[in-house]
Amino acid sequence: MSELRYTANNSLEQLHSRYTGTGHADITKYEWMTHQHRDTLASIVGHPPLLSYIAIADGETRGREKFEVLERMLQPCGLPPGKTDE
């Protein structure tokens, strides 16, 4: 049984090191949401038909929409919450 647990933990660590957006045991809600939003925004920029769809919906050019999406990637969920001392 312990061998299975070791294998599961090892594969989970490999998954986390390969894909940074998968998080870890101590990830905060803010960090997780930021990863999800950035991943979505990167997908929009990386798929030209999706970028065109968003540009048409907003009534902007593709270049302007791409610029705005890249700007949103800086802080997609706003400022980080303040640190609490516990």
Rank of each mutant, 00 (worst) to 15 (best):
H35L: 10
N9K: 07
P81A: 11
I54V: 15
T40W: 08
S52V: 03
Y30G: 15
T34F: 13
Y19A: 09
D26V: 15
A42H: 05
S11T: 10
E86R: 09
Y19R: 08
I54P: 02
L41W: 07
H24S: 13
S52I: 02
E86N: 14
H37K: 10
E86K: 07
R62S: 04
K83C: 09
W32K: 11
I44C: 11
E65V: 04
G59V: 00
Y19M: 04
S43R: 08
R64F: 13
R64P: 05
R64W: 06
H24F: 11
R62V: 09
G78R: 04
I27T: 07
M73F: 11
L4R: 04
I56K: 04
G78N: 03
L4Y: 00
E31K: 05
Y53A: 08
R18F: 08
T84C: 05
Q14E: 10
Q36D: 07
F67Q: 09
R72W: 14
L41C: 03
K83Y: 05
T61V: 04
D39V: 00
M1N: 13
G59T: 00
D58F: 08
Q14S: 12
E71V: 12
H37V: 07
T20N: 15
H35K: 04
E68C: 10
N9V: 11
E31L: 11
M1H: 12
Y6E: 11
L4M: 11
G59D: 03
L41S: 01
G82Y: 01
P49W: 01
T34A: 12
L4V: 12
G82M: 02
D39R: 02
A8E: 06
S2Q: 09
G46Q: 09
T22V: 11
H35Y: 06
E31N: 11
D58S: 06
R5S: 05
L15A: 15
L50T: 08
G23A: 02
L41R: 00
G63Y: 02
T28M: 12
E86C: 13
L51E: 01
G59P: 01
S52R: 04
R64Q: 10
T7S: 15
T7I: 08
L79G: 13
I54R: 01
W32A: 15
M33G: 14
M1Q: 09
T7W: 01
P49T: 03
T34N: 09
M73V: 00
L15H: 06
A25D: 13
S2N: 10
L51D: 00
Y6M: 15
D26G: 14
I56G: 02
E71L: 10
S43A: 14
Q36G: 09
G23V: 00
L4H: 02
N10Y: 08
G21W: 01
